[in-house]
Design a protein around this nucleic acid. Sequence first.
DNA 1: CGTTACCCCTGGAGGC
DNA 2: TGCCTCCAGGGGTAAC
Length: 275
Amino acid sequence: MPELPEVEVSRQGLLPHLSGQTIVGTVVRTPRLRHEIPVGLDSRLSGLQVDAILRRGKYLLLDCASKRGGGWLLIHLGMSGSLRLVPPATPAQKHDHVDLVFKNTVMRLRDPRRFGALLWHEGAEVGAHPALAALGIEPLSDAFSGDWLHAATRGRRMPVKPLLMDSRLVVGIGNIYAAESLFRAGISPLRGAGRISLQRYRILTGAIRSTLEASIAAGGSTVRDYVHSDGGAGCFQLACAVYDRRGQPCPVCMTPIRTTRQAGRSTFYCPTCQR
DNA sequence: CGTTACCCCTGGAGGC
DNA sequence: TGCCTCCAGGGGTAAC
C-alpha cells in the first residue's frame, strides 16, 4: 500500500478531475471489502457533488457534503488498493470492486486483497467518524516536532519502529517509511522509544518529514502494485537504503543490511549506522 | 495499561 | 508444469 505519500499523490491526481463534478452513479461489484459496503449507496450518492478531496492519515476524504443529505466518502486503500480514472464504460478487470461514475470519467477502486475500505459518513462533521476520531498527529503538520514526539514517547518501552507505525500516535507512516526514516536518522528500530533523546527525536522528525515529502514530490514510490490515479505506474521509486535490502551492503558503510521481525512486520536496518 | 498474536484476502516468488 | 509454503505497503480485535 499506499503509505501516506501514495495516498497524497492519489489525492493530488484526482482533485483536478473530480473537483466540482457531480456523481451520476455508483457501481459496487464487490461489497465485501474490509467493511461491507451498504446496500443503497448508489441512491445516496447520486446527484451529490465532490467539492474537495482531503487526506487524513491514509484515508482519502471526498467532501460531498454541500447538498442536503450529503456527507463524506472515506476511502482507505489497505495493502493493495489503487484508484484510477478511466473513460466511461471501460470494462472492469479482476478486482475492480467499486466505480464512482461521473459524466465524463469513472473513478475506479481496485484492491486484490480487499483490505481497503469505502465508508460513508452522513453530514458535514467527517472528523466524528469512528475511523478518524482516534487518529494521531499528521507527520507533515507543523505540530509534529522532535519536542512533540519526545514528549509523547516518555515512558514508552515499545521499540521505536512499531510505535512510529501506530496510527493512534502518528498517522501515515508504514513499514517502508518507518524503516527508511530511522535509517536516515541513524536510530535503531529496536531501541525503546522512551530511551531516545530529544536531540535524536529532532533529527528523526526531520528525517520523517523529508522522506515523506521527497516521495510525494516524486509521485509516490512504486514498490509493488501501486498505480497512479491516472492509471500509469508511479513515475519514481524512492531509492530505499534499507527496506527490502536484506544482506545487501548499507549505502553508507557497506555493512550487510540486517532483518528481523517486530510486531509481525519485517524490519530492515544497518547494525552499524543505526544505534 | 501496554504489548503481542492473529486474522482478514489474493497473488507472486521460490523450493521441490 | 504443478503444488506447496512463505511473504507482502494495513489495521482491528482478542488475549496475555
